[in-house]
Write a protein that binds this DNA or RNA. Structure first.
Lengths: 203, 203
DNA sequence: ATCCTTCCCTAACAAGTGTTTGGTAGGTTA
DNA sequence: TAACCTACCAAACACTTGTTAGGGAAGGAT
């Protein structure tokens, strides 16, 4: 006899995705800890206990939300990094890709922003710390390449620059609304224009 | 007979400030909702109930933390805005002042960043919404003045620029550590250099 | 007609939550 | 010495939290 056996239930993956989407909206709006499973159930039109037919814990919901987001994010990033572009073009592509991800996974990005630092300490969410490190390597490396080949200025602290750029991109998730005035590509264009060339008029 | 009378206790203001400082650290590290009054009490070396000798609720703690921070912030901002500087100098002064505030109130700024959007909906925290509006008026107005007198570029969406600048300044509270390599003024200088002149080398 | 699967409900649980009440040790004042 | 004040503790409260167990309705397959 096997030591343990999960009850033989097979929830449909589509329903899971629906529920995860509404859960992500509530998490993003209220914060993970302030969100009770009853609020999620309310938003989904069911009772709290019924959620446990689809998921085995509240934690596994945010886990699945964040991990699927990061998986898709790195699909895009890896493609950009493998393209062999120059430093400036790489930065442009990464920023554009980032705003596209915000467009597609607004809620997940907002959750990531608020909770990742806190969650990354738990072993279950080790992949958050891993991802953050990979992230830093990709961006910092590109900036360094750019300084080396004189695409970027050499007089700025590159670590500070990295943090500023990174933060500015991702905080956008807190105010961005899909279907608004600006497309992700337009936002990326404006943002890149500011960071690369500055907002001051040359005198 | 008056309808209600608070019990006649007079906690010392200095002790209050001490406790608020430790509470702010815990709030900033764990998030407001994830922080229990027992954790705060632990960090302060006392029991949960004892906190209620000094404060009448957990909510009033974060209230006092945020409101005193905002009061001091606006002292600095108002002084800058009243100085009658040009657009570029005003932006520089506001950014520098902001990083000084982050240096002084790191925990409060981190809390403000994470919880203000959520809290501002409650009547008790109306002043958060008020402050945010005043904030927008000050920054956006300065940027508009700069566009009008050709200090800043006219081809950028000014609202987007405002959001980028605002967010990047305040998110710094999440990674800034007082006593680190860079002084607030140095961070402000580098940040301004990036935003005003861009990171690309002129070709 | 019977069985099985999917999906949700009802009802409860144990642990943890913010908060209150009454008490008390130690210092200051009368 | 007595009265008082400050600052805390001990113990409980009412409530909310995530989670579980058992049941049942609907529909397709046999």
């Amino acid at each position: 006899m096997p030591t343990k056996k999960k009850p033989q239930v097979t929830p449909s993956p589509e329903r899971r995705r629906e529920l995860l989407a509404t859960a992500a909206e509530v998490f993003a709006a209220q914060g993970y800890n302030a969100t009770t499973v009853r609020k999620i159930a309310d938003a989904a039109g069911m009772l709290a206990g019924s959620l446990y037919y689809h998921f085995d814990s509240k934690e596994s919901m945010i886990d699945e939300i964040l991990s699927t987001f990061l998986t898709e994010l790195w699909d895009g990033y890896d493609a950009v990094l493998a393209a062999g572009l120059g430093p400036r073009e790489t930065i442009e592509a990464l920023v554009t890709e980032s705003f596209r991800e915000i467009d597609r996974h607004r809620a997940a990005v907002a959750i990531y922003q608020k909770e990742s630092r806190h969650l990354a300490t738990q072993p279950r969410f080790q992949y958050l710390a891993d991802s953050q490190q990979k992230f830093e390597k990709a961006w910092l490396g590109t900036l360094e390449r750019g300084v080396a080949d004189k695409t970027f200025r050499a007089d700025l602290d590159i670590r500070l620059t990295y943090r500023f750029v990174r933060d500015t991109v991702w905080v956008a998730a807190s105010w961005y609304r899909p279907g608004g005035q600006h497309s992700p590509e337009e936002i990326a264009r404006q943002y890149l224009s500011m960071v690369l060339d500055g907002i001051a008029l040359d005198t």
